[in-house]
Amino acid sequence: MRLTKDHLAGLLFLFFGLGAIIVAQGYSIGTLARMGSGYFPTMIGGLISLLGFIVLVRAIIKPESSEPMATIELRPMLFISAAIITFGILVDQFGIIPALASLIIIGRFAGREGTAIEVAMMVLVLTGVIIAIFVYGLNIRLNLGPW
């Protein structure tokens, strides 16, 4: 059996739907007339699971109704995530200049084109623009650097 997009979509919905139901059992459920905090999430989780189940079953019975799973190119995803996570780590501790520089430099590896000079220019210009707009234009207090 080949793996189609609907197989995985069904599983994704089931994962979140069932997860929501299981977690919601820790909250007070109540009755329909007096709902506790767990009632509505359980209901929504149930609906999502039901839809996920239908999507999955349909994909198993009629695999040709959905496209096969394409190969995933992990490079852009990994580098963009890494760039943003690093930004989050650096921005609190060291301020926005190092954080922005690392965001742009690590983000550069998500693509395949561009020279080092281009990246350096981008760091300079974008950091300048951001500081001009947010710090001077909008008067938002941001730490510029570790100093």
Partner: peptide, 30 residues
């Protein structure tokens, strides 16, 4: 596009950070 996406990245990250000054928001965005 290689010039555009860093601009979007930079504006998104700073934009989110300025809402609550919280790194957690940035990780949640990922």
């Amino acid at each position: 596009y290689r010039w555009l996406y860093p601009i979007i990245l930079v504006f998104s990250c700073i934009g989110i950070y300025t809402v609550n000054h919280s790194s957690i928001d940035i990780w949640v965005m990922v």
